[in-house]
């Protein structure tokens, strides 16, 4: 695998507002973006908050906005898209951008899109790819997560903490441009140095408790990056804030030899954007590395002995890691690991 993969452009909209600056300042503020949902009626739900942009924006419009910003006049070709289809509402996922390859693998869709786009460049099939992803909080998924008792009843996300109650949803719409390092037309913001995907082969929705599936994804990414876990300086965790998932992830970090690396889960701040969340978190990771400030995890109450991770809490950690790991897991035991290299 000869070709390196540069991230040369990024654009994002989240509950913190439009643009990378808004996202970075939001997560470094340590103040979660959750607020009462006004976009639709939640009076019949157990939980009534989410991290949402103002009003009721259109997913297509916001995707076109971030893709346009990321491409900045260059062609939108080789588009890898991660979205949640709403076929009952007339929105079939694959028809939004018919020429894209559209990923619908729940909470790892966008990281799989990044991995495949990077792989196609690394193997010489393309010199450029656009990865875009979007989820806007809407009534059907909100109702499903509420019915499944997956939403945090105390209306806070507390990854890896004792007393964590679950997830909260958040808007996330993002796009990045990947280019072959030898052909990059713009200065890299960071590098996609490694990627790995692996399955748990364990359960319909629960993660394998020992974390071995996610650990294999990390090991695959480390092999491609040709680094050891000791060279990682930051982990942007999946960190959903759900009881079982956080334990499995802590076990995975231990199995992969990364138990001591500083960890945060920015889902505690910008929320869980389902198919799009990994791209929001990858952008957050690149922004934090460039800023030299690693975000703190919000909602922390007390250390959970079952989650022995080196969690960043209270305030951002000043650091300039050369390499960072972005992790994601999803229903069906789907796991991904992306390794970002500093420019």
């Amino acid at each position: 695998m000869a070709e390196s993969v540069a991230i040369t452009s990024m654009a994002v909209a989240s509950a913190y507002g439009h643009g990378c600056d808004a996202l970075l300042h939001g997560v470094l503020s340590g103040k979660p973006a959750f607020a009462p949902v006004t976009r639709f009626d939640v009076s019949a739900r157990r939980v009534g908050v989410a991290a949402a942009l103002a009003g009721a924006p259109s997913l297509r419009t916001l995707l076109e906005e971030v893709i346009g910003q990321a491409c900045n006049g260059e062609p939108v070709d080789n588009l890898h898209l991660a979205i949640h289809g709403e076929p009952a509402r007339g929105h079939f996922a694959g028809r939004l951008f018919p020429l894209a390859r559209t990923y619908t693998s729940a909470c790892v869709a966008a990281s799989q899109a990044v991995a495949d786009a990077a792989s196609s460049i690394a193997h010489g099939f393309a010199t450029r790819a656009v990865v875009a992803a979007g989820y806007l909080v809407e009534p059907d998924q909100f109702a499903l997560f509420d019915a499944g008792r997956a939403l945090a009843a105390d209306e806070a996300v507390r990854p890896f903490s004792l007393g964590r109650k679950g997830i909260l949803l958040g808007d996330g719409v993002a796009a990045i441009v990947l280019e072959a390092g030898s052909a990059a037309t713009r200065k890299p913001l960071g590098w996609v140095r490694g990627w790995g995907r692996a399955g748990d082969a364990y359960h319909v929705v629960q993660p394998r408790p020992d974390g071995s599936g996610l650990a294999r994804a990390v090991e695959s990414a480390l092999r491609k990056a040709a680094i050891t876990p000791l060279e990682l300086g930051y982990v942007n965790a999946h960190g959903s804030g759900s009881a079982q998932s956080d334990v499995a992830e802590a076990n995975a970090l231990r199995l992969a030899g990364a138990a001591d690396v500083p960890v945060s889960s920015t889902k505690s701040l910008h929320g869980q954007s389902l198919e799009a969340s990994p791209l929001v978190e990858l952008i957050t990771t690149v922004l934090a590395m460039r800023e030299g400030q690693l975000p703190a995890t919000a909602g922390f109450l007390q250390a959970d002995p079952e989650c022995p991770v080196n969690l960043i809490v209270d305030e951002p950690l000043a650091a300039k890691p050369r390499y960072a790991l972005s992790l994601n897991s999803a229903f069906g035991g789907a796991n991904t690991a992306l390794i970002v290299g500093a420019p």
Partner: peptide
């Protein structure tokens, strides 16, 4: 999400490779 039945199939047949859903 289609991941769910993919997870069922992966567990039943011990398929530990990636789970991917496309549309």
């Amino acid at each position: 999400v289609p991941n769910a039945v993919a997870g069922y199939i992966a567990a039943k047949w011990n398929l530990q490779g990636p789970v991917v859903c496309l549309s």
